[in-house]
Amino acid sequence: MSLAPETGLDTAKGAAPAADADLPLLRVSGLSKFYGDRVGCRDVSLAVWPGEVLAIAGESGSGKTTLLNCLATRLTPTSGVVEYRMRDGSVRDLYRLSEAEQRLLMRTDWGFVHQNPIDGLRMNVSAGANVGERLMAVGARHYGKLRSEAERWLERVEIPASRIDDDPRAFSGGMRQRLQIARNLVTGPRLIFMDEPTGGLDVSVQARLLDLLRQLVADLGLAVVIVTHDLAVARLLSHRMMVMKGGEVIEEGLTDRILDDPREPYTQLLVSSILQV
């Protein structure tokens, strides 16, 4: 059964065929964003492969969120190219796609998890409708199937299915964040952008969410670009990381190498600032 007949989306599993695993999903070259004469980010190049988690670390104002928004077509870059390999294998320049294509990509093959779940949820409709919205957007028109799919995803993110008709307003911060994640994953996306997903949460709630994210990313073979100022989050979730300062990438590589053997003065400062428990 396909819930999304019009797009032929495979909602069951997002794992990419092995033949494509060697090609990057997202490739960025020479990307810059200026706000007038202020630098948002400058000359950033990167690539993300299927199933890979890339963390972008740096303190606030370092340009990491600007970069994320430029990758996710939420903010038009001043210069540079962002290319994405579509499901049919063709590589497209995201900023040459029509707005309709961009938006379709955004709500089918991509996800975006906001720091504040209010920005990523519809607060005035039920949890079930929040999860089902993307499916309805791509043509799902069977209430019963939408509902069982929503129940399945709620349980997957550890929200009791009995809460399906509750408004997100009645949910705790951690539950709202998990609901936002379920809402994004329901169409079987291949690439997820996350902006400080554990930002506003209590430490114990953070740990649970991180662990859930780690499992989902591994089980679904998701590619993730995650912005975080928290190096522990980067350590736990990411394979590779980039450190940004003043809008530029100053160091990048394997996450454990950046954290265990940081080269740049700023990275050493960041790493040495982690609280040891």
Partner: peptide, 9 residues
């Protein structure tokens, strides 16, 4: 899709 969200609700 949003119209159906309303009907779903």
């Amino acid at each position: 899709g949003l119209m159906h969200v309303k009907l779903y609700e």
